[in-house]
Design a protein around this nucleic acid. Structure first.
Length: 572
RNA sequence: GCGCCCAUAGCUCAAUGGAUAGAGCGUAAGCCUCCGGAGCUUAAAAUAGAGGUUCGAUUCCUCUUGGGCGCACCA
């Protein structure tokens, strides 16, 4: 009785930590190893569940574990490593053989059959993409890839900021000062100038504020001239964005701005009023009170009848749930909009718009200027994304030129782009998304240490070893007996086993940095590995074992990097 | 005033409630007759403060201090 329960617990822990099913593991001749390969703290987990006194738990459980079929199957031996900690000695050849298939099957089942919408990037048109947008774009793209890798059906949505009073302001500014030819020449740059100028003039001429609102109202009511201007602004912006997206390797399945939901807005407000969730003020504005959720009230219609940010997001939720029937919608949007999403999600819940869909705001910290102040578009304090990518590319090119001058310049360009763009992305993806990031050129352009090039370089070296060993492919082979597997072989093996676990955690926590940290750890262990363990010169079975190990490691690094949106190269 | 996020080494960041808190940069000292030195060794160096829960807290709870971001006609 007890031992069955225990076995189940151990199997669960083994599955959770090492992602394999105990029953699937084949029995092979036991071989004693000098270092523990599987360490877990099952004992305490069990003790706390069953109320066994902790200090005795490890010993009690050891007796039970000793009779467990799992332990006899998988482990060659086990011992207590400390209060509540048990080390299991695992047979390495058992795992290596099954590893690729194991990884594949574990991954694709985790979110199989689920539909996930990821809304990310979502830049405002008529404004340049700056370093601030990189977080949503890169984190969002990585999350979408992670869910896809785990078997989900993923939709990538770019919810463009193409509607709202700001366009009234832009139209007003263009009507006052704009010149067609100049906008044609450098669209976003010129539009930004107009927008900034408008805000500057507003300081001395406050009436401009209402002028902007008036122009937006006209746009919303279908004024032909304003609509034409708006369409033109949007078109020019998208053309410029497309260049950057291509460079970043980011693709969307749906690019529909806020304006897309414009025809549905009146219906949403009317419905909220009819069902008494919202109340109309005497000035004509409509508000939803959320005291019950201990949130401040949320305005969904302006007194002039115009719509608001919240109105559009509500319409979007209703529309998306109806159309896609997703399990989750992830909104990759900055921290500063937390209240907005709390309000919108609460209203959606009240009104039953998303009864069986999880709505989740994936918030991330701001990118602050080097003076720790917010980078604001209005004051023109921005660092264009293209500048950052160009600088990174340049720097990477210099290094390739230095390391490998004989490569054709076309190849060097390609390497520089992969390394440059990759390191900018990795810089962002390798850290927790919650904290604010202080922008730092040096850090952004880091090409050594914990950085994308480190991982890319590790991959190149692994491939190089495989190439030197002869033969194009190195299928993983079963090795019946090994004379001298080293400590580092086992560490790499164990690290490889944990790949699906980190993918899963990255998805659960919506934290791509968990995957990045894993890849770094793997690369680090691999670097130590081929430093201490000869591969090509190893004797026959060990050579096969190590080539197999390297081959799997290379594939995992490549796949992991691609999931993060970082491209690998074959030489650098 | 209220709410949300954050505080870890000199700097930038890690750490599913678990074992001796890990990396990178910088600093100091090493390693290419050995599969690519964008690499590998070694050293010094940290949990903001006070309580609480727990066998065990960087992690969870409360308060304090210090920073950031929000709080109805911007998005």
């Amino acid at each position: 009785m007890l031992s069955q329960k225990l076995q189940a617990e151990v199997a669960k822990a083994a599955h959770k930590h090492y992602q394999f099913k105990a029953e699937e593991v084949e029995v092979e001749p036991t071989r004693e190893l000098s270092h523990g390969d599987l360490t877990t703290n099952v004992a305490l987990k069990i003790a706390s569940k069953w109320g066994v006194p902790v200090r005795q738990a490890a010993e009690t459980i050891t007796d039970e574990l000793k009779q467990s079929r799992l332990v006899n199957t998988v482990c060659s031996r086990m011992e207590i490593a400390g209060p509540g900690f048990i080390n299991f000695w695992i047979k390495p050849t058992v795992f290596l053989k099954q590893l690729p298939e194991l990884i594949k099957s574990q991954k694709r089942n985790i979110y199989k059959g689920q539909k996930v919408l990821v809304e990310f990037s979502s830049p405002n048109i008529a404004k340049p993409m700056h370093v601030g947008h990189i977080r949503s774009t890169i984190i969002g793209a990585a999350l979408a890839n992670i869910y896809q890798a785990l078997g989900a059906n993923v939709y990538r949505l770019n919810h463009l900021g193409d509607w709202g009073t700001q366009f009234g302001k832009l139209i007003a500014a263009y009507k006052r000062w704009g010149k067609r030819e100049q906008v044609k020449k450098a669209p976003i740059e010129e539009m930004l100038k107009l927008y900034v100028k408008f805000h500057e003039e507003m300081k001395t001429e406050p009436e401009l504020e209402t002028e902007g609102q008036r122009e937006f109202l006209k746009l919303e009511q279908g004024n032909r001239q304003n609509k034409a201007l708006w369409n033109w602004f949007k078109h020019e912006s998208l053309m410029e964005f497309e260049v950057l997206y291509k460079r970043l390797g980011v693709k969307f399945s749906h690019v529909t701005g806020e304006s897309y939901y414009e025809p549905m807005l009146k219906g949403v407000v009317a419905e909220l009023l009819r069902r008494k969730f919202a109340t109309k003020n005497s000035d004509g504005s409509v508000v939803v009170h959320l005291e019950a959720e201990s949130l401040p009230p949320c305005l969904v219609q302006k007194s002039d009848g115009g719509s608001l940010y919240a109105t559009r997001d509500l319409a979007a939720i209703r529309y998306r749930v109806k159309k896609f029937k997703p399990n989750k919608i992830l909104y990759v949007v900055g921290n500063e909009q937390a209240l907005h999403f709390d309000q919108v999600f609460s209203i959606a819940k009240l009104a039953g718009y998303a009864s069986s869909t999880e709505l989740r705001h994936i918030k991330y910290g701001l990118i602050l200027g080097e003076d720790k102040q917010k980078l604001a578009t209005r004051e023109g304090r921005i660092i264009p994304l293209a500048d950052v990518l160009n600088k990174a590319h340049e720097l990477a090119y210099k290094i390739v030129q230095n390391k490998n001058p004989s490569l054709p310049s076309k190849v060097k360009e390609r390497i520089a782009e992969a390394v440059g763009v990759g390191s900018v992305k990795y810089n962002d993806l390798s850290q927790n998304r919650h904290t604010d990031i202080t922008f730092n050129w040096q850090k952004m352009l880091e090409l050594e240490g914990n950085s994308a090039p480190y991982l890319q370089y590790t991959y190149v070296r692994l491939k190089s070893v495989l190439k030197k060993a002869g033969g194009k492919r190195h299928p993983v082979m079963s090795v019946k007996s090994l004379a001298s597997v080293g400590e580092q072989d086992l560490i790499v093996l164990r690290t490889l086993m944990r790949y699906p676990e980190f993918l899963r955690r990255a998805a659960e926590d919506c934290g791509p940095h968990l995957l990045a940290a894993y890849l770094y750890e793997l690369a680090n262990q691999v670097n130590i590995f081929y430093h201490v363990a000869p591969v090509i010169k190893a004797e026959s079975t060990l050579r096969i074992f190590r080539l197999s190990l390297i081959s799997i490691a290379a594939e995992v690094i490549k796949e992991g990097l691609n999931i993060l949106g970082i491209t690998t190269v074959e030489q650098m």
